[in-house]
Write a protein that binds this DNA or RNA. Sequence first.
RNA 1: CGGGGUGUAGCUCAGUUUGGUAGAGCACUGCUUUCGGGAGGCAGUUGUCGGAGGUUCGAAUCCUCUCACCCCGACCA
Length: 574
Amino acid sequence: MRATQLLISTLKETPADAEVISHQLLLRAGMIRKLEANGLYNWLPLGLKVLRKVEKIIREEMDKSGAQEVLMPVVQPADLWIESKRWEYYGAELLRFKDRHDREFCLGPTHEEVITDIARRELRSYKQLPINFYQIQTKFRDEVRPRFGIMRAREFIMKDAYSFHLTQESLQQTYDVMYETYSSIFSRLGLQFRAVLADTGSIGGNKSHEFHVIALSGEDAIAYSDQSNYAANVELAEAISPVISRSQATQELKKVSTPNQHSIEDVSNFLNVSPEQCLKTLIVYGKEDGLVALILRGDHQLNVIKAAKHELIASPVVFASNEEIKETIGCEIGSIGIIDLKIPMIVDRSALQVSDFVCGANEDGFHLTGVNWGRDLPEPTNIFDLRNVVENDPSPDGSGHLKIARGIEVGHIFQLGEKYSSAMQAKVLDETGRAVTMTMGCYGIGVTRVVAAAIEQNHDEKGIIWHDSIAPYQIVLTPMNMHKSKRLEIASEELYKKLIAAGFEVLFDDRKERAGVMFADWELIGIPHRLVISDKGLDEQTFEYKGRRDKDAQKISADQLIDFLKSKIGNNAM
RNA sequence: CGGGGUGUAGCUCAGUUUGGUAGAGCACUGCUUUCGGGAGGCAGUUGUCGGAGGUUCGAAUCCUCUCACCCCGACCA
């Protein structure tokens, strides 16, 4: 490709509404542009090149896994969604509208209904199973608050796959294949990623993994062991109770005045004890009427997803209002304590381990010190894992300690079970001739999000750094002052053709631009390999090469150039 | 949906307090130079001042309404 024939719309300045680095760089590199409305983006030629490469790798690996590609409409009839009950439950994220005949439709945020409809029409026999369909298709979710550019846009491209099975064992097998396939995909994309155990949430099912690209700007926190393969979303990661037993009580129970000291930070500073030595009491609504107290160590954070799984706690977790707390317990939020609480109490495992602790006195302006389980109040009976794991907690698999990293969720695989197949009567005959509801798996990759995630992970102050496999072009050929040297022009044209013949994806910067402009543009756009051709170099039969991450350029003799480039770029992108 | 902020040239922004008829830098066009790191010079082009209504001799500026976008939160798998 010649630069004079390519839309190069680089910006020197960062548009004011771009918050995250991937959004800024995609805009500045001229890869995407926002359409008038919020959360909708145009893909310009250079950006689309990248997107298509990501799609190609996904497609190749999915095909290799034995999945088959289909294409389903973006517009979906309401009837199917009514059948699955999601017309009622999906909420405002589902963009609904009517056609000219007043029939109701929606824009597909996902395609479970449609694929299940295909399956129930086309699949008749267990002999056709297992089967795995995928598509790469545009989705629309009317997000409450789209943000971060293409990271969380309203319209986006997703690779979604749906598998159908007669048995759980079969589902597990395909699930494992997808796990491996995803690992291959993200490896080929050149991403540093981690597969983590995930909460299955309201979709249900018994097993789920998220694939996260590790990046400081990630929206999710993930916990992983420093010594084993264990990794889980912090939402899910289990906080193991340390094996150490509680120390003996050494202090007297005392009531102390703590005027205007409310937060754990206030109280621990005021009494000169560490937050670990304090217990905090959070009041939430119970599943039945009434309130429930949750007891955590002062330095720990409540994990609302874990808490919502407790049988006494309302799901989702809702904190009690100040008025109700005052009415039921008799004090303000900052002074709630554990002794003589009149409501059910659920104690985090770690809170159980503390002796001589500090807690509220259930009386405004007072706390208790030297409190001990068993001595000053009964040993708790209701013990639960309520908190977020923190750095250096023991790993739940017993091997090593947990580290915390930020991740961008780019893929999610889970076992759906029969939620859609049973609601929509998707059945096949088994070997005894009996109609059996199929069980399903579902596997997504946010294709457009992958592009953003790749940038979040790979950029510097000059711009994007694409991995060879997804760069819009592998090599950029930049001649120095070509318009002044006929000899250089001829040599550049020759080299351009030679590189193409050798199988490289090469961009020839034939613009009449100064060197600095060319260099700055291609560094911003993130072309991984740069060749400079100059009169000086022609004299000594060399070209100058610089990798996007290299500090300095190096001279390569003309006769070795192709071999050199092949060794640099390798086969992964060819 | 709640809170905060911003709307002026393609981009970044000044001008609004104190009303007087629209600006800078970058970008873009042409020419030019000492042309390997977003260079310099000369000459140009670019606006419903987000929209509607009002006050006024006169509104980007004051008032009312409205729309859009951004940030924080809530929501969401």
